[in-house]
């Protein structure tokens, strides 16, 4: 149990740090407001190295921590919408499709942005927002691709160590 707590804590800390690092790098050169979503790298890695629910736990704890530290509640709900939808879609894609970690991550990137824009339309009640849809689709694809490639490299190397924490449970 304590080893598992340590592993989760480490991943949450890493995701939290990556969220902060990202605020230092301006990625928004094409469409303002677009992010690479470096913290989602940790979610994808957790999804492939640990169990499905651990990826959800790490991603949710990170969203709440980052939300309360760097932003506020009204911005955090967008992170939650994106985070939850992309998590659900990535889990489904990983189970039923024959996509590799790269494809699953692309699904995650695209659905993350989809979740955010849909919530925005619901909150603001103005469909003019959908103007951004193709740009967000493109951004989600690029971000998902980069995160997926990175996650692929990292997973191969850390899986033996991370899955050690999981296996000792049973």
């Amino acid at each position: 149990m304590s080893k598992r707590v340590a592993a989760y804590g480490m991943l949450v800390a890493l995701a939290f740090l990556l969220s902060y690092v990202e605020t230092l790098i301006p990625f928004s050169f094409v469409v303002p407001g677009i992010k690479l979503g470096l913290a989602n790298l940790v979610t994808v890695i957790a999804l492939y190295c640990l169990e499905e629910k651990s990826a959800l736990a790490v991603s949710m704890v990170r969203i709440f921590l980052v939300g309360f530290t760097f932003t506020n509640l009204s911005i955090m709900v967008y992170s939650l919408a994106g985070g939850l939808l992309s998590y659900i879609c990535m889990v489904i894609a990983r189970r039923v499709s024959r996509l590799s970690v790269v494809g699953v991550s692309v699904i995650g990137g695209v659905t993350h942005n989809l979740g955010q824009i849909l919530l925005a339309v619901v909150i603001v009640k103005n469909s003019a927002l959908l103007y951004y849809f193709p740009f967000l689709l493109g951004a989600g694809t690029v971000a998902g691709l980069m995160i997926g490639l990175l996650a692929g490299f990292v997973t191969v190397r850390v899986k033996p160590y991370l899955s050690l924490y999981e296996r000792q449970e049973r």
Partner: peptide, 8 residues
Amino acid sequence: MKRQDLYL
């Protein structure tokens, strides 16, 4: 990366 990824 697999062929399915490229299709996607």
